[in-house]
Design a protein around this nucleic acid. Structure first.
Lengths: 235, 235
DNA sequence: CGCGGTTTTGAGTTACATCAACATGCGTGG
DNA sequence: CCACGCATGTTGATGTAACTCAAAACCGCG
């Protein structure tokens, strides 16, 4: 959009940092990283609303004179720039914010749809894709397991198991505390099989019953992925 | 808002009807009922985005020159009025639509959070509450089980069991095909117990193991509700 | 080193999906 | 009028994905 920057005010957020109110007549533009946006109810309860991804405009409430209280927390290291909005451009920014809100709403629903492995996959792809060539994960930073679990609405142990499976499938590399790089294209194309989320003992036990082949525990024969199957955001 | 109605164009939608594009320079205002709004991707896939509830403004895309394609389907009988927007009021409407989109986004996340009984409860309350004194369920119309299941992301059989339990608890009366009235206040205050979603046989079986009391099957002794417990939208 | 936070892994349990059968109501057409 | 689909809702039986609880490994950090 053609909103010009007044001063190149930059802001860096670390894991878990909250985003401050922008200056009067300004908005934030997210350059990299990802935030969790929550709606704070009048009674103090805050409920998850959506994610914010690179390219999104944040802090429009003040500009629009909404007393709506929204709070944002970084789930990966993030950088923002402060953008001053001319009076006559406010409408433009609003339109953009509106379109963004809708998109993010659909994103959230997709992140709460289907099996947990699918949801985690969608989250990772969402973080990796970005728009305008900007990606949330251009470094190898990932959200914490708890944050991811919170977003997709599951238990963090389950997310751990999913990532573990991804790692054993070599779709995810260099897994560390809040880091890891994964192969975007492979992740997008592969289809998940059920059974990724239980304790591995159970998987092996079942396999034994079936007289099947999965070794697993380092042998990584058990495949959580099958070459061709239906999947996707369909519901 | 101070947008004045040009002609009192009214529109009634039945179960499943799609909302048409508003006239040029106009928007729809939802007066009663509820719709499901979906985002249609360029590749033809349509994914659930949010609900539309009474008071919401619909069809802002054209006004804002967004080529964003959004489609709405009525999940209960709904009535809309066509509202003409003056050029100078466009910004106002946008602000309102933006705030609404955020709220609905948070709603959707809440509808995908927690146990299925909780989610169904939230859905019913959302439909019953409305804003500005307008409620989606002022008649006794309810969405179909399939629509409710789609919204909360579960199987329609499960929703059926939940409603059955609500009925047996006398929180829901006059259950028929797409109808039913329920006691809003009671529903809001009561807390659900787990175990509402399985076949009743299992419930009775478990109860028998525990040497407990539930008769259930007409005796309605088994209580899916306990007087005091934590619950709510917390996560 | 000990200490909080994150992640991993295991074992057991359960809420829910799935599959299947059946009931009910509504419209259409013979 | 009944027969017939077709959509909606109900109910049962069963399997399993994912949760819970618990314990341990790992990792920076003061």
């Amino acid at each position: 959009m053609k909103s010009q920057k007044s001063e190149f005010a930059q802001l860096s957020l670390g894991h878990g940092d909250a985003i401050p109110q922008p200056d009067e007549g300004c908005v934030w533009q997210l350059e990299s990283g990802a935030l969790c946006m929550s709606h704070v109810q009048p009674d103090g309860q805050s409920s998850l609303m959506c994610l914010a991804l690179p390219g999104d405009v944040l802090g429009v409430e003040r500009l629009a004179n909404l007393e709506d209280s929204v709070e944002g927390r970084a789930i990966t290291p993030a950088t923002l720039t402060l953008v001053a909005i001319e009076k006559r451009d406010v409408a433009h920014v609003l339109v953009r914010a509106f379109a963004c809100a809708r998109q993010r709403s659909a994103d959230m629903v997709a992140l709460r749809t289907g099996s947990v492995p699918d949801r985690v996959r969608r989250l990772l792809l969402l973080l990796a894709d970005g728009r305008d060539g900007r990606r949330a994960l251009n470094t190898n930073a990932l959200p914490s397991l708890r944050d991811m679990a919170f977003i997709v609405g599951s238990a963090h142990e389950t997310v751990s198991r999913v990532l573990g499976r991804l790692k054993s499938l070599d779709l995810l590399q260099d897994r560390k505390a809040q880091c890891g790089t994964f192969k975007v294209q492979d992740l997008r194309e592969h289809n998940f099989r059920p059974g990724m989320t239980s304790s591995s003992m159970i998987v092996r036990y079942r396999a034994a019953l079936d007289g099947a082949q999965p070794v697993f525990r380092d042998g990584r024969v058990f495949s959580a992925v099958e070459p061709m199957a239906k999947s996707g955001v369909s519901q």
